[in-house]
Every structure is written in structure tokens, then in C-alpha cells.
Design a protein around this nucleic acid. Structure first.
Lengths: 332, 332
DNA sequence: TTGAAAGCGCTAACAA
DNA sequence: TTGTTAGCGCTTTCAA
């Protein structure tokens, strides 16, 4: 059996209270006693049982991370950065793939609750805002990344999606594109980016053709959408995709039709995942500073957990256009 | 404060023992009492504190997953599949990015230990086999995926790396390639695949030129290695890479030199990650059945945890060649 | 400087 | 059918 504090105390010939103090380096005791206890702990390979200390009101030093789908590169980069910062702060992170399914969300929340995690980070938002509200009302520390809530005050780290959509679109406009299609994500983020897209068109005095606005999520969606767009009598000369996978779908579809990217069609992705650098041509895309975001969201949660901060904070980061090879001015 | 079992008991006018029985649906009591208790639990939004029950010797229903780097697509697919099966069996999974760093490994093991997880799955092996041995000796349920141990008996789920290296290489030989380079992973897996590679050459009566054997891990490594290989007076006509990222590095390097893949150079990757389908040309690669492997390893661990199985098991799966566009017969 | 003891929320053996 | 009670391993207050 694993040694307990009692075993250590017995072995050291002291009381468990003294051992506890030695573990946490608190209280005062003779150097001698402390050393002796520490040595014995070492020898017996003693690890304090966190369950027990958590029971006494201490933290569990564990947080939950709700994420749409870990096998998606953007998600997994977020997970990685959150975990990295968590580790630095001494927290373990439990991963939870929600697939945007409200039932899974509810299940995970309930489990995390039973495990008395110190806090929760969600990268998948809450399909059901009531759940978020409950959590906040129960004073469970929570922070969102890449997502926001319209109705609940909560810590968030997001990227300015409006600006992202705007920048991507006006970059194309600046290059001379006049007919620009877009494939939007069916999420709040997507809607904001769409607003940015529309704003850029408007600002340039360009009409907004609703037929050029499609939606989707996966590579296949991208293929389908591109196919549709390219069959129009007046096809777009450029497409702004809601994520890199969609953009790749567009590229694949173009290839099938013998349309050359970027000469005959320009494409911009979103997220700057690892995928963007390995396509041919490589993908111009909007970067979200994932590493920094993960770090920040964990920090926010940490402050919330340790009670260092009472006011909810929203951190908004700027997206950044990463220029590669998939965009060119249109054929005049 | 969160309600405890005492609150429920008081509210229901029964003892905590009765509540406990109601929670676990054990023992016998009148339907009436049970219903009443359940309703009250519902109303007060009561969630049993897992810390407390774990302290009483119950499981924590949590396992740790040691993984090299979650931002690597192959890793994250493993993580996803393990988590999926874990969820089905009622387990949460704590993620731990080791980066193959023995210190991180040790740190995570210690933390997981303190948190009294029910078991550990490692996809990153153990740089330090002693640590594995300790774990096994302490009867901590553990299972490895994609890794194996020469000296410790432990549950494992692996893919036959020898066969993978052999298949990839003999596929190329069958197509007429005579000079085949390889970039091996600097891991046990890599060494096994290298053996397979050599065996295929030998079987075909081809010489094995040590100069054609390089090693690496990242896209950049792949680029460098390819550059080196292609500068030989007698460059290889095909390259077997240790993973998809290396293969992509090779493709990039070839592109820079104006070498056309697959016409002038064939490339085979390994892992069949999402990357393989989006390169141009798409990548022929060895598939590892990640989804099935994750499921199996979680099942093995589960059996170990629940004591349903005493004997250690190794499950070896067959890799599978996925033919895409990056391979062609050599120019005569 | 050290220790005794209460109690965190729960389970399970035993008693009523 | 229901309740009493002794811990699980630990922290912390108070006393010695």
C-alpha cells in the first residue's frame, strides 16, 4: 500500500501535524526534525494524497478544458497552449471533446463538478447559455477562449473576428478583386467575420451579392461550396474561407476543375494552422495568436480561482494576415 | 456552498446512509423514500463529491495520458480516440505533454500519483525505463500505445513497425526503384521500421547504402535530409520517411530544387495524418489505425484497473499502405 | 517546538 | 427498512 502521513509520522517518531507542516514548509520546527521527515518521505516515496487535502477545502489543482474536437489542428493547438500554461501554474487539465453537442457539454460539466475541479475553460462556447449562467452563478471559475457570451459576464479571450473578416476582404479588394465569395462558419465567430467582410465591401463601394455567401465547416463543405461558386455565370475571383480546412476544400475543388490557384482564383484561409504551410500553393490565412491566447485564458482562470480578481475581463486580440502564395491580383 | 450528503439527508428527513444507498441504488428501501431522496438531490442540484468517495477507497475515474506533443496531428488523434473510449467507460482523461523530456515525464507521473488516478496511458513511452518499472511494481495500472518496452512486462498496443518499413520499401522496389533513401525517426519505432526497410532491400538482393539512411523528426529535418540525399552523385529515386511531416519536408525541398514529385522522386510518409491528404501531390503513406488503437489501449487499461485481467497483453496491429499520388515507378 | 483532536464528505459494516 | 458509527488521509486550531 501507498504510505500515508501516518506512516511517515510513525517512522519519524513525530506526530502527523508535524509531518504536515514539514510537507508545506509552514510553522516552525527544528531544522533537524524537518530534515529527518523530508528524508523519510523521500525514502518511502511518499506522495501526499490530494483527495484528502482537497477534502479539507484545498484546491484540486485541476481544471477542465472543453474543446470541440481535439483531432482538429486548431483545437489541439489551443489545448496544447492551455496545458503548457497550466503546467507552469501547477494545474492539470482534463480534456473534454464536446463536438458542439449540448448533451456532451452537460455531461462533462457534471463530471467536472463531481471531481471538484478548480475551474473550467471552454473553447467550444456553450450551445446552451443557461449552463454557462448556472456555472457563473455557482461561482465556478470559468473562462472562454475564442468564444464569447452575449448575455453572461464572463472572462474571455477572443480574437477580433470582425477585424479578421474585414482585413482578409479588404486585402483582396486592395489587390483589385471585385467579386469576392465567402464561406462562413456557422458560429458566432463566423457571423462577426461576415460582418467584417460586408463592411469591407461596403467601404469600397462594392455590392454585396448574397449568392456569394455560403457556409460550412469541413474540407468537404469547402469543396461543395467552391463548386457551387465556380459554376455561377459570374464566378468570384477570390474566396475568403472561414477556416483553413474550408480553404483547402476550395483548393481541391479548383484543382479538380483545372482552375489554377492563385492565378485564376485567390483563396484566404483562417486560423493559420499547420495545414496552411504545407498546401501547394501555400495558404494565405488569418493568424490567431493561439499560443498567447491559451496562456492568457489560463491566466484569467487562475486569477479567478485564486480570487485575485473580482471583475470579469475580456481580452481581445488582433488577428493578423499571413501572406503566402494563394492570393494574387485578379486577371484583369 | 455546495450541498453535501448531510444537507440532502436533513432535507429528506433520513440518515446519510440512506441517501448514500439511494445514490448508488444499492441496499433496499421503500420506493417512496428513494423517490423522495432522488427528487431532493435533483432540486438541490446535488453532486456527490468524488474526492470523498475516492478517499474511501473508491476509484477516481480519472486516467492520465502522456503524449509527446498535442499539437502534432498524430498525437492529437490518439488523444481524441483515447478520450472517446474513456468517456464511454466513464473515465476522464488528464493530458500531459511530455515532449519526450524525462523530467516532464517524472513530474507528470508524480502529479498523477498524487491525484491518485486509476491508471496511466503513455503514448510517449518512457525515456527512463526505470520509471516504467516502478509504476508496474507499484501496481499502478499502465498501458502503452505505439510504444513498447523491451524489459518490462506491460500492456501495449502497437503497430508492427518492422512490417510497416518493409511494406513501404518493398512497394517501391516492386515499382522498380533500386536506390531508396530513408529518413528514420530516432525512436524505437524508427529502428524497427529501418529493420523492415533493410529486410526488404536484402530480400530483393539490393545493396544497403548507409549513406542513404538519415534521421530526423520535423518538417525541417525532412528538408535538410532531402537536400543532402539529392546532392549525392547518385541520388535515390525514392524516399521512405519516418512520418508525414518528414515526407512533407522532402516534398518542400524537392520543390525548391525543381524536382518533380512523383515523376523524378517518389516519397512515402508514415502515419496517414490529415496532412497526407492535403499536400500536392497527395501523400502515399503508411496508415496506423489510430482510432482502433486508442480504443484498445483504453480497454486494456480498463481491464487492468478493474482487475478483470491478470496477464499483460500486447496487441499488435498491422499497418496499411495508403496509396495516393506521391509515388511512381522511377524514370527508367 | 511539537502534538492532540476535530472534521472535510463519503462508504459500508453493523445495529436497531 | 433505516440509522449509527468508524474511518479514509489530510489540514489546522489550540494547547502543552
Amino acid at each position: 500500500m501507498k504510505p500515508t502521513i501516518v506512516d511517515i509520522a510513525r517512522e519519524a517518531g513525530v506526530s502527523i501535524a508535524t509531518v504536515s507542516k514539514a510537507i508545506h514548509n509552514t510553522g516552525r520546527m527544528s531544522e533537524e526534525t524537518r530534515k529527518k521527515i523530508l528524508t523519510i518521505m523521500q525514502d518511502m516515496n511518499y506522495r501526499p494524497n490530494m483527495m484528502a487535502s482537497a477534502l479539507k477545502g484545498k484546491s484540486t489543482y485541476t481544471v477542465g478544458l472543453l474543446i470541440p474536437d481535439l483531432s482538429n489542428p486548431f483545437s489541439s493547438e489551443i489545448a496544447r497552449s492551455v496545458e503548457d500554461r497550466g503546467k507552469e501554474l501547477g494545474y492539470s487539465v482534463v480534456m473534454c471533446n464536446t463536438d458542439y453537442d449540448p448533451e456532451k457539454e452537460a455531461w462533462y460539466i457534471s463530471v467536472l463538478n463531481q471531481k471538484r475541479v478548480d475551474g473550467i475553460i471552454s473553447a467550444s462556447g456553450f450551445q446552451n447559455e443557461d449552463m454557462l449562467r448556472d456555472l457563473v452563478e455557482q461561482h465556478i471559475p470559468i473562462a472562454l477562449i475564442t468564444r464569447d457570451s452575449k448575455t453572461v459576464a464572463v472572462d474571455t479571450v477572443t480574437v477580433d473576428d470582425f477585424m479578421g473578416g474585414y482585413q482578409a476582404t479588404s486585402y483582396l479588394i486592395g489587390l483589385g478583386h471585385r467579386r469576392i465569395g465567402t464561406i462562413v462558419l456557422d458560429l458566432d465567430n463566423g457571423r462577426e467575420r461576415l460582418r467584417g467582410y460586408k463592411h469591407a465591401l461596403e467601404e469600397a463601394g462594392l455590392p454585396c451579392d448574397e449568392k456569394l455567401i455560403l457556409s460550412g465547416f469541413t474540407k468537404e463543405d469547402g469543396k461543395e461550396a467552391a463548386a457551387k461558386l465556380m459554376e455561377y455565370s459570374e464566378p468570384p475571383t477570390a474566396i475568403v474561407a472561414g477556416n483553413d480546412l474550408l480553404a483547402i476544400g476550395v483548393m481541391l475543388s479548383a484543382k479538380e476543375r483545372g482552375i489554377i490557384i492563385p492565378d485564376q482564383l485567390s483563396v484566404i484561409g483562417y486560423d493559420n494552422t499547420i495545414l496552411a504551410e504545407i498546401t501547394t500553393p501555400s495558404l494565405t490565412t488569418m493568424n490567431q495568436p493561439v499560443g498567447e491566447m491559451g496562456r492568457q485564458v489560463m491566466d484569467l482562470l487562475y486569477q479567478e480561482i485564486t480570487g485575485k480578481k473580482k471583475i470579469k475581463k475580456r481580452i481581445v486580440m488582433a488577428p493578423e494576415l499571413v501572406i503566402r502564395e494563394s492570393v494574387k491580383p485578379p486577371l484583369s
